[in-house]
Deep mutational scan, measured.
Amino acid sequence: MASQGTKRSYEQMETDGERQNATEIRASVGKMIDGIGRFYIQMCTELKLSDYEGRLIQNSLTIERMVLSAFDERRNKYLEEHPSAGKDPKKTGGPIYKRVDRKWMRELVLYDKEEIRRIWRQANNGDDATAGLTHMMIWHSNLNDTTYQRTRALVRTGMDPRMCSLMQGSTLPRRSGAAGAAVKGVGTMVMELIRMIKRGINDRNFWRGENGRKTRSAYERMCNILKGKFQTAAQRAMMDQVRESRNPGNAEIEDLIFLARSALILRGSVAHKSCLPACVYGPAVASGYDFEKEGYSLVGIDPFKLLQNSQVYSLIRPNENPAHKSQLVWMACNSAAFEDLRVLSFIRGTKVSPRGKLSTRGVQIASNENMDAMESSTLELRSRYWAIRTRSGGNTNQQRASAGQISVQPAFSVQRNLPFDKPTIMAAFTGNTEGRTSDMRAEIIRMMEGAKPEEMSFQGRGVFELSDERAANPIVPSFDMSNEGSYFFGDNAEEYDN
């Protein structure tokens, strides 16, 4: 993207840094990872977990959730003011799984939030270390993106479920800051804005008074975040219109849905970061690795190297396929839920299948599930090659597409044709070009129609051997075009429920 120079890199967003050079960025990201790792080690000690239990991804998720809940100030305040039966607002906890007599047992633990905050700050040299908290939120978000298709949420806001490739980060909490905003897809931002506008339509006082002023500035800020994701002048001009509207209503909703559809071809720039579970960072720190000293990046080879040398386990339900569970977590670790499966298959070195073909449910185990038949197995999170994460949407291309997802959002900077089903997408653009945004709409449609099938995206960008740390010898991959490109292809993934 041309304006790259004016933006802070995501590592800076990730670490609240002012302008830093590459070495400083690597050190501050490393410091953040160190903090998460030290916190995780301490929690495993508190909970008396064995090494194996500490490497269980379900335990990692519970521990991450506990610290996120302990620092969720708004919710904590709300819980104190609106006490609900049987919930102690000062405590947080969740299921911890232990191996007892050759069987997995679930144990519900409860801790004072104050105590968890103390352990977290102690692991982070006394700081609140917001960057580390956001990092864990993005890992949870990436896992949700890989596990669930947001059909219901899309339909509720009037969008087409086939636009799911635009929904990265749709389950990120509001408090995820600049680093969170960077990884949100165009569809996620559109959905947040539509929800806001709908509230304004239904509630006369939404934009009024002292609160209304705050609401208005939040609305304009979200519009600017979305505008910054678009790469064409016409899309940005249309966002200006939406932002400046005196009284946002149905016309703005129409414009936003139009823009979301246009992003299936004229893709937005959305950041991709490899955020790993805390149970990967903990053992690495415990083994003596100093992330701050060595430096770390979320968008280069580092996460690949770390996963190459990590042992992570997962509980497996009786009829689940461990290899499929591994694929789910591998995609989440690489922030690749909406990437082209052919690119992923090449990088991973084994075939990556669409969601609907995987015999696996989510990673988390519900409290009512029976533990008797639970097994555990090693997650295979290694890769054959590594590639640089991208934040450009890439230019655009036609490809055989599917009944489910009709476009992709690249996660890796790797040369390819970008699949999208042009006739299906263009069919949504018939007729409606009147109104105050008509010239911009016409211009956007013209650009979409001009998108050429034979153009290559990320020209000359390749993948790298894991021994090639400096990215000196790019390998331009070859793809098996007979395979499906979309992950949520004609899909039956479970729906995400809060």
Rank of each mutant, 00 (worst) to 15 (best):
Met1Pro: 10
Gln12Ser: 15
Met13Trp: 03
Asp16Met: 12
Gly17Tyr: 00
Asn21Met: 15
Glu24Ala: 09
Ser28Glu: 02
Met32Val: 13
Arg38Val: 04
Glu46Val: 08
Leu47Pro: 12
Asp51Met: 05
Glu53Met: 07
Gly54Val: 05
Arg55Phe: 07
Leu61Phe: 11
Glu81Phe: 13
Ala85Val: 13
Pro95Trp: 10
Ile96Leu: 15
Lys103Asn: 14
Arg106Asp: 06
Arg106His: 10
Leu110Asp: 08
Tyr111Thr: 15
Asp112His: 12
Ile116Trp: 05
Thr130Leu: 12
Gly132Thr: 05
His135Ile: 05
Ser141Phe: 12
Leu143Gly: 10
Leu143Asn: 04
Asp145Cys: 06
Gln149Lys: 11
Thr151Arg: 06
Val155Arg: 10
Val155Glu: 02
Met159Ile: 12
Pro161Cys: 06
Arg162Gly: 08
Leu166Ile: 14
Met167Val: 06
Met167Leu: 15
Gln168Cys: 07
Thr171Ile: 08
Leu172Ala: 14
Leu172Trp: 04
Arg174Pro: 01
Ala178Arg: 13
Ala178Ile: 07
Ala181Arg: 07
Val183Asn: 01
Gly187Leu: 05
Glu192Lys: 12
Ile197Ala: 14
Lys198Glu: 08
Arg199Glu: 07
Asp203Ser: 05
Arg204Val: 04
Arg208Val: 02
Asn211Lys: 02
Arg213Tyr: 09
Lys229Glu: 09
Phe230Tyr: 10
Gln231Met: 15
Ala233Thr: 15
Asp240Pro: 00
Gln241Pro: 02
Arg243Asn: 02
Asn247Ser: 15
Ala251Met: 05
Glu252Asp: 10
Ile253Gly: 05
Ala263Leu: 01
Ile265Trp: 01
Pro277Ile: 06
Ala284Gly: 02
Ala286Met: 12
Ser287Tyr: 10
Glu292Gly: 13
Glu292Gln: 13
Glu294Gln: 15
Gly295Leu: 04
Ser297Arg: 03
Ser310Gly: 12
Gln311Cys: 00
Val312Trp: 10
Pro322Gln: 11
Leu328Ala: 05
Leu328Trp: 03
Trp330Arg: 09
Trp330Gln: 04
Ala332Gly: 12
Ala336Arg: 06
Ala337Trp: 12
Phe338Glu: 00
Glu339Thr: 01
Asp340Cys: 09
Asp340Lys: 03
Val343Gly: 05
Ser345Ala: 08
Ser345Leu: 04
Thr350Leu: 12
Lys357Val: 05
Ser359Leu: 12
Ser359Glu: 01
Thr360Pro: 07
Gln364Lys: 02
Ser367Pro: 00
Asn368Phe: 03
Met374Asn: 08
Leu379Cys: 13
Glu380Met: 04
Arg382Gly: 09
Ile388Lys: 15
Ile388Leu: 07
Arg391Cys: 02
Asn397Tyr: 00
Gly404Pro: 02
Val408Leu: 12
Gln415Pro: 00
Lys422Asn: 11
Pro423Ile: 06
Pro423Lys: 15
Ala427Leu: 14
Phe429Ala: 01
Asn432Pro: 10
Glu443Tyr: 02
Gly450Trp: 06
Ala451His: 13
Lys452Val: 14
Ser457Glu: 01
Arg461Ser: 03
Gly462Asp: 01
Val463Asp: 10
Ser467Met: 12
Val476Met: 06
Asp480Asn: 07
Ser482Phe: 03
Ser482Thr: 12
Gly485Met: 05
Ser486Ile: 08
Tyr487Thr: 01
Phe489Gln: 02
